[in-house]
Design a binder for these strands. Structure first.
Lengths: 162, 162
DNA sequence: ATTGAAACTTGATCGTT
DNA sequence: AACGATCAAGTTTCAAT
């Protein structure tokens, strides 16, 4: 991995496409070089398919943190708190729950320093009362494309044509 | 949504590509029709970018379940239990933790019936002691491409060229 | 809305540095 | 490993249904 590869992957995330042409324009790297780099990333297993899913460990994002956040808020503000959490850099998923905990937040990070930064970012939100059950976890399965055969069968039964 | 659209999205998940050609072959739908359908899915916001991320709510997968699973197992079997959990149909993410809870499991499902099925699938695993903190949650943010500007900056600093 | 075939754009390849 | 020029391959469009 070097900076150029990271910039290519960054362009993918930013543009939402894997087109060598668009990536080339965005990064100012010639498109044949972009193509060469992307092929190599696939060959090395960093990028795992045509949808450009990435292997987090190979990128050094081995730390996944699952945090349960409790917040103090009026009914009408839970959306606002959720968005504040979502805006924290490094946060990938935010779920709102209706149990003891209010939010479950998931982040993929590169090192411990970033974990500390994340925690202090949580604490800087006024409404956040406490962050409990901070799990640093090992990823067993991470299916980015959220649909599987099971769901498809259900969906096919369920769909009313429109 | 109709069955044909679902089958196209299923092909995307199965093949790991958005190529009209490959999808056409897999589904036996003519490639120009596949193209027409995919364009419409993008236009309607069901598919949100060239990487073919999907809007779960629009697909009727509005129920996300986060489950904390505790298991009884010898040290060498935690991998096996993790895989059993990952194999359950409808399970999208599995994280192994080193706290009180052993696994955090995330699923996207279409209705309550499926939630019950999921729970009974957990219970059918020998080593699973209990499933606690079953949260049915509302998705505030779900970023499937797991990389963001924050991480990219960190990565660019961190990378040693290889 | 569907499709086969035509038109076109693009990604992949190759040879050179 | 990088890259500009070239070509094959793929996608997109179109007209008819």
């Amino acid at each position: 991995m070097d900076e150029r590869n990271v910039r290519i992957l960054q362009a993918v995330a930013e543009l939402g496409t894997g087109s060598p042409d668009e990536i080339a324009e965005y990064t100012d790297i010639p498109k044949s070089t972009v193509h060469y780099r992307l092929s190599k990333l696939k060959e090395d297993g960093v990028v795992t398919n045509d949808l450009l899913d990435v292997d987090l460990e190979q990128l050094g994002l081995d730390i996944t943190v699952v945090t349960e956040v409790t917040a103090e808020y009026d009914e009408q503000y839970h959306e606002e708190v959720g968005e504040k959490l979502a805006d924290i850099e490094g946060v990938n998923q935010v779920y709102f729950t209706m149990g003891d905990t209010d939010f479950i937040v998931i982040s993929h990070l590169s090192d411990r320093k970033m974990v500390h930064r994340l925690i202090s970012d949580y604490e800087s939100i006024d409404e956040v009362v406490r962050t409990s059950s901070q799990f640093v976890v090992e990823t067993v399965k991470n299916e980015s494309y959220p649909l599987n055969d099971f769901e498809f069968d259900t969906l096919i039964e369920a769909v009313d044509d429109d």
